[in-house]
Write a protein that binds this DNA or RNA. Structure first.
Lengths: 223, 223
DNA sequence: CTAACATGAAAGTATTACTATTATATTTGC
DNA sequence: GCAAATATAATAGTAATACTTTCATGTTAG
C-alpha cells in the first residue's frame, strides 16, 4: 500500500484550488501545516494569516493556492475521501465473498485512523481528527448546491456508491442501500465524535468499537 | 398537544441566554425572526446587525439577550430538542407494547416536520430546516467540551437516553443501545439533509421515507 | 541573459463581532 | 401622578477577519 501510494497521486477535483499545492514546496507546506493548525485551534479560529506566520510565509502567497479557507477545507476533505477510497479498493479487492467483502469495507470506513502511513507530508491521523470534527462544515453551507454542481463532492459520493454496490451484492432487493451506505460513513464519523466529546451517549468506547456496532447493524439489516 | 403547549413552557438551559427572550416582546421577535433570517441567508452569513435591521431594532439590544450568535444557535437547538422530547413523550406515553412504542418514537424523531403547530411565535417547520442544515455547528466547535460541562446539551442527551430506554425495553442485552439511539437521531437529520442537497446518495425520497428506513433498520437489528 | 513566474511585504477595504457610553422611552412601585 | 428603575435605541469605537491590490525581489527556463 505504502509502495503504491508513493507512485500514485491522490487526485482532488482541480476546481477546488487556484494552484495545485502538490506542485511546489510552499504548496505542500500549506497543506501539511494547515492540518496541524486546524487541529490545534479549530477551523473556525483558523486564518491564512496565522498559517502564514506558522510556515514563515505570507498570507497573500497562500491566497494564490486557495481562494478561501473554505476551499482549503474542501481540499482536505476531498483528499481524505480519495485516500479512504483507495484504502477501500485495495483492502477489499481480493475478497470474493460478498459478506466478507462488505465487512472489510465497513471496517475500513468506520475505524479510527491511528497510524500515519507516512508516505507524504500529510499526517493521516491528524487529518482524520479534522474530518471527524470539521468535515461537515464543508457541506453545511448556503453554497452547497452550487458547489455540488461544480463537482466538489464527487469523490465522497463515489465512495458511498461503492459501499452501496457491496451492500446490493448481498441483498439486491434491499431498497435503502444508498441510505445505509451514507449512514455507515457519516455515522461512523459521528460515533467517533461522540466517543471524544459526548461519551455518555455512545457505546463505541471501552473496547467496543464503532466498527463492531456497524457490522452488527448491517448484518442484521441485510439478513 | 396544542392545548398543553399553550400552558407549558419549553424550558431551555438558562445559562444559554443573558436575558430570557420569552419574557419580552423584543425577545420573542428576536427568536421569531432569527429563525426566518438564518433560514434565508444561512447561519454563517447571519449577523445581529442584519437581524436588528429586520426587526427594526438595534444590534446592541439583541446583545442584551444573547452573548453571541453561537449562543443563539444553542438556544434554538435546545428549544427544538425540548419540543421534540415533548412530542416524543406525549405520542408514546399511552403505548404499552414495546415494539409499537419504539416504532412511534422513531417516527417522531425522524420525520420531516411539515406542519407548524402554531402555538407560539416559533415556526417549527422553518426551525426544523435550520436544525437539519445548521444544528451540527452548535457542537462542532473547539469549545464543545466546556459548553457540555456547562450543561448546554442536556436536553439533547436526555432525548437520546429516552430513545435508548425504549430500545433496551425490547432487547435488554443489546450492547449498542446508546449508539443506535444517537444514530437514529443524527442519521435522521442527515438523511433529510441528503434528500435536499445530495439526492443521489440517499433512498429517502420519492415516497420512501427516512422513518421507514430507520424502522426497518432498527427492527432487524433488535430481532 | 532576459522574460516569465513564484513569493514576499505592505497597505488598503469592507465587514464582523463585539463593547461602551449616553440618551430616551416605558413600566412599576409608592 | 411622579420618581426610580428598567428596557431599548443610537452612536461610536475596537480589534480581528477575509480578503484584494500593488509593487518589489528572487528564481528558473529557454
Amino acid at each position: 500500500m505504502k509502495n503504491l501510494l508513493s507512485v500514485l497521486k491522490i487526485a482532488v477535483p482541480d476546481k477546488i484550488y487556484l494552484k495545485d499545492p502538490e506542485t511546489s514546496d510552499l504548496g505542500k507546506r500549506i497543506i501539511e501545516h494547515s492540518i496541524l493548525l486546524i487541529h490545534e485551534i479549530g477551523f473556525d479560529n483558523f486564518t491564512f494569516k496565522k498559517l502564514g506566520f506558522k510556515i514563515g510565509s505570507n498570507e497573500s502567497s497562500i491566497y494564490r493556492y486557495f481562494e478561501s479557507k473554505h476551499k482549503l477545507l474542501l481540499y482536505l476533505s476531498s483528499w481524505y475521501w480519495a485516500w479512504l477510497e483507495y484504502q477501500l479498493v485495495i483492502e477489499t479487492f481480493s475478497i470474493s465473498e460478498s459478506k466478507a467483502k462488505l465487512e472489510k469495507a465497513i471496517e475500513v470506513v468506520t475505524k479510527t485512523i491511528a497510524i500515519d502511513s507516512d508516505f507524504s507530508h500529510i499526517n493521516e491521523v491528524i487529518l482524520y481528527k479534522i474530518i471527524v470534527n470539521e468535515s461537515s462544515k464543508s457541506f453545511l453551507t448556503k453554497e452547497v448546491d452550487t458547489e455540488n454542481k461544480e463537482g466538489y463532492f464527487e469523490i465522497y459520493k463515489r465512495l458511498i456508491t461503492r459501499l452501496k454496490e457491496m451492500i446490493l451484492a448481498i441483498k439486491p432487493e434491499y431498497l435503502f442501500a444508498l441510505s445505509l451506505a451514507s449512514s455507515i460513513l457519516e455515522g461512523g464519523l459521528h460515533q467517533n465524535f461522540l466517543n471524544e466529546h459526548f461519551p455518555s451517549i455512545t457505546n463505541c468506547k471501552d473496547g467496543k468499537t464503532t466498527t463492531e456496532f456497524f457490522i452488527h447493524l448491517v448484518e442484521n439489516t441485510l439478513k
